[in-house]
Write a protein that binds this DNA or RNA. Structure first.
Length: 199
DNA sequence: TGCACGATTCTCT
DNA sequence: GAGAATCGTGCAA
């Protein structure tokens, strides 16, 4: 995907990323997966966002950088989470968070990186930190340009029609007061790789 | 300098 | 369904 794709409202970017393919070429081999679940984080006004109130620190610095780059951070001292910086120009620190992938290429390699998945395809990347482990996304990928290899997003995936997209509140942001109710999570309905389904 | 806590996952009950 | 693992970050002092 070209940079312009990301230079739009994150809600639209989050929705349109569904069905596209995330690819990571590493020395171990290439892994890829179809994006099946995303969330939008709407910058300074969004209490759930790390960039709430334009908080600009070493961690959030990449959110203030160019669109189409990766924002990777450490959570709970042991896991990573992955976002792509998005948003209209002039830029605000907004991003799209990746919650789940459907594994496509390099499934054996993913299984090796995800021993606790116990070779179950559905468990390889059905969570934000699980997909980072499966795709080998870590601190090194923070700030990487996702518009070109070796770490990038391709548009050759499945076309997802609007009536196959479910919109629901975001996960794990209870601390964000009224912002936690915003229906800014998107996923492909009836896809078995989605991490959490609305009831 | 100190300290509470997290855009989570896994194990055990 | 509860509790642990584990450490960089953010804010108070």
């Amino acid at each position: 995907m070209k940079r312009e794709f990301y230079e739009r409202n994150p809600l639209g970017v989050a929705k349109e990323l569904l069905g596209k393919t995330l690819v990571h070429e590493t020395a171990q081999g290439t892994t890829s997966g179809m994006i099946v679940e995303t969330e939008a984080y709407m910058g300074p006004e969004d209490k759930a966002s790390h960039a709430f109130g334009n908080r600009r620190t070493k961690r959030t610095e990449t959110q203030f950088g160019p669109k189409g780059h990766a924002y990777v951070y450490l959570i709970y001292g042991m896991y990573y989470c992955f976002n792509v910086i998005s948003g209209k120009i002039p830029a605000k620190p907004e991003a799209v968070f990746f919650r789940a992938l459907q594994p496509l290429e390099g499934i054996e390699l993913m299984a090796k990186r995800r021993p606790t998945a116990n070779c179950k395809l559905e468990h390889l990347a059905n969570g934000p930190s699980k997909l980072c482990m499966a795709m080998n996304i870590a601190k090194l990928q923070n700030g990487a340009d996702l518009t070109k290899p070796p770490f990038y997003i391709r548009a050759d995936g499945v076309k997802v029609s609007a009536n196959n997209i479910v919109q629901a509140p975001r996960i794990g942001v209870d601390y964000a007061n009224e912002w936690k109710h915003k229906p800014w999570r998107f996923y492909i309905s009836d896809n078995p790789f989605v991490s959490v389904k609305a009831k």
